[in-house]
Design a protein around this nucleic acid. Structure first.
Lengths: 159, 159
DNA sequence: GCTGACGTACTCGGATAACGTTTGTCCGAGTCCGATAGG
DNA sequence: CCTATCGGACTCGGACAAACGTTATCCGAGTACGTCAGC
């Protein structure tokens, strides 16, 4: 069970966009983080479709946050990249084989699936409780220079 | 982020083994649950290497639980199949690119990784709190006939 | 009748292919900015 | 000097390959049981 690499990229980019405050091209975000430009653009498209960022075409265009960073949770970013399908998918094994459970007996969800769903809910609860702004604030506390440096670098007109 | 199919199989098999009480061949478990026999054997090998089940060779052999079902948590089964590597792996993006953070600045873990680790810990805590015996007990409460039926079917000598 | 060795059949175990998802890349459609020419 | 038009360059967006991991399968090594011959 490995989470997509794009989630880490997307979260870093959300922080970068929060510090920039204005549209930033995908290529510039890629350069800042030393990532493949084309593929990063694909991940940002996922964020755009989920309504977390808005894309601006043409010169001076790029991506910017669609909402204040306080209103974007980490869970939303994860779901935008990974899709919201739960990690565990019950295939109803109890209904298969020679001793298959009758449909009537399956009125309640499979107990195994219930446990997995509880764990998944706890996981999502933790991620939903943290916003992009929370992470940005933590970084700002420990290393105040980083936000201004990145923000300035992103806003500088390209050579 | 999709969990391996084998986790579901392994958990069902652990329940089956708990009800059987004696070694059961992988082929019989596969027949009971209508699963590919060869591949199921591979998953059981993972459980054996993790020390959750013990394999018995020869006639009347098979797999049986290595410990009482009360002492086998769902988390252990998941880790045995999936490997214990966390879903999110920080690649230290902050250390890359033109504004790479200095090694000194990276004394604390990346804030993004911290959030992910907290969520992962909550997930693991939920899974660690439930044992195979707990699930078996729940099934036994709702459908008392199932454990005896499966246990008897597994113990019957093959035709 | 008891004991020992042997043969057989059954079990797991690791090495070997096919599929699907993720990762990575490219080029085309659309859009805004700036320059330029005219009034 | 102001304004409308045009050209260009920059942006995202979706279509197109490669690589990895998961899924699936097979055959060989090892082992315990049942049988049989000998004592």
């Amino acid at each position: 069970m490995r989470m997509s690499q794009g989630v880490e990229w997307a979260l870093h980019c959300c922080l970068n966009l929060a510090w920039a405050g204005e549209p930033v091209p995908a290529a510039r975000l890629a350069e800042l983080n030393d990532l493949p430009p084309a593929y990063l653009g694909k991940q940002l498209q996922h964020l755009a479709r989920a309504g977390l960022v808005v894309s601006v075409s043409g010169p001076r265009g790029g991506f910017r946050l669609a909402r204040p960073a306080e209103e974007i949770s980490v869970l939303e970013v994860v779901d935008a990249i990974e899709g919201a399908t739960p990690a565990f998918q019950c295939t109803e094994i109890r209904r298969r084989g020679p001793l298959a459970a009758s449909p009537k007996a399956c009125r309640t969800a499979c107990q195994i699936a219930q446990v997995m769903d509880r764990a998944d809910a706890a996981w999502r609860r933790e991620l939903a409780a943290v916003s992009v702004a929370d992470i940005a604030a933590e970084v700002g506390e420990q290393l105040p220079a980083v936000p201004v440096a990145i923000g300035g670098w992103l806003r500088q007109p390209r050579a």
